Amino acid sequence: MWGFVLIAKNDAFQAFKKVKFLTENKTEHKIKTLRTDRDDEFLSTEFIRLCENEGIERHLTTPYTPQQNGVVERGNRTVMAMVRSLLKGTHMQARFWGEAVRHVVYMLKRLRTKVLGECTPFEAWKGRKPHLAHLRVFGCVAYVKNTAPHLKKIDDRSSPMVYLGVDKGCKAHRVFDPRHDKLQISRDVMFQENYEWTWNASANKDENLPEFMVVDAFDTDEVIVAADVTLRKGRNMSHQLQQP
């Protein structure tokens, strides 16, 4: 259930150490066998020494024979196919591939697989069904609460950004601000899942975004998210309610 996005292949050893520690700490079971290919990052002196000291049996595939490690290779193929679909479908730049991989792996852990039948990997690992109500459409427009101090009355209370998924180990969302080229973590987000960021326009600091506002319903705690035609209807309704 643990996954890490590697910046370089040389990070494989440190990533395996983290996975090993987290897995054994969570399950109280030792890793007994490790199957990998023969790339240099898996045959380094430190990697071999760690496996020998921990009593981990090594299974190495024959060179140029990825089918001997078919489960991993098929999993990689599935992940990358979904990543391409996410990036192309939302017209996002290729530099967001890491965020797309993070989101895809998060979803795959919470979807049924043929091997587990009606169970998801999350349920097999945690012993309970996953909660999915917090997930949104990857790459959609997200309006993030402006937490800057000393806001003036006419200052914007939210800023449009791009949704990149759920932040690991935190009940919050990962969002990207294209106008300032900055990644943020926030809980106070409202989504427009039917809209995606117009990347060409954002490069010129001229966003083509749907009209958006939040209207507090009268005499209730209900919050109405309005856009486009819905927004105009809400304004007309508010005007009618204000008339004597």
Rank of each mutant, 00 (worst) to 15 (best):
C51F: 05
F138N: 01
L60T: 03
T62P: 04
S85I: 02
A226G: 02
G139I: 15
S85E: 10
F47Y: 10
L86F: 05
V214L: 13
K152H: 07
K152Q: 07
E57H: 04
E207I: 03
N76I: 05
T61R: 00
M107E: 08
E24L: 09
G89T: 13
E118D: 12
V137K: 11
N76T: 11
T27M: 03
G117Q: 01
S85V: 00
L43S: 02
L116S: 01
L108Y: 09
Q240T: 15
V115H: 12
S159P: 00
Y143P: 00
K205R: 05
R77K: 06
T220R: 15
H59I: 10
E207F: 14
H150E: 07
G165K: 03
P210E: 07
K109R: 10
L111H: 12
D188K: 13
D155H: 02
G70I: 13
S158P: 03
W97H: 05
C51N: 05
S158C: 13
G55K: 03
Q14E: 11
W199I: 15
A12F: 09
T113D: 03
T36V: 01
P244Q: 11
W199V: 14
N69T: 06
L132G: 12
K32I: 03
K30I: 03
A15F: 04
G75P: 00
K9D: 03
F47D: 00
V141H: 01
Q184E: 07
R95G: 06
D155A: 04
G127W: 08
E41Y: 08
R38I: 04
F96A: 00
W125P: 00
V175F: 07
E196N: 05
I48F: 12
H134E: 09
I48E: 04
D216V: 14
E196A: 03
S85H: 06
P244N: 12
G55M: 08
F16Y: 12
T62D: 07
W97Y: 13
D181Q: 08
R174L: 08
V225M: 15
G75V: 10
K153E: 13
N53R: 09
T198V: 14
G3W: 10
V71K: 08
D219S: 12
V105L: 05
W97M: 03
E52A: 14
V214W: 09
N194D: 06
D156A: 04
A133N: 11
N200S: 10
H180E: 14
Q14G: 05
T90V: 08
V137A: 03
M80I: 06
P121S: 05
L86Q: 06
N146L: 02
Y143W: 15
D206A: 11
V225P: 00
E193K: 09
E54T: 02
A12V: 11
D39E: 10
V19W: 10
D206Q: 11
D219Y: 15
Y163Q: 04
F138Y: 05
T33F: 14
R110K: 06
Q242Y: 13
V229I: 14
A226I: 13
H91K: 03
T61D: 00
G234P: 03
K114S: 12
F191I: 07
I224L: 15
D40K: 01
F191R: 04
E207G: 08
A124K: 09
A12S: 11
R235E: 14
V101P: 05
P121Q: 09
V144D: 01
K152A: 15
R58Y: 12
L6D: 04
T198K: 11
S202D: 12
L183P: 02
D228T: 10
K109W: 09
S202Q: 13
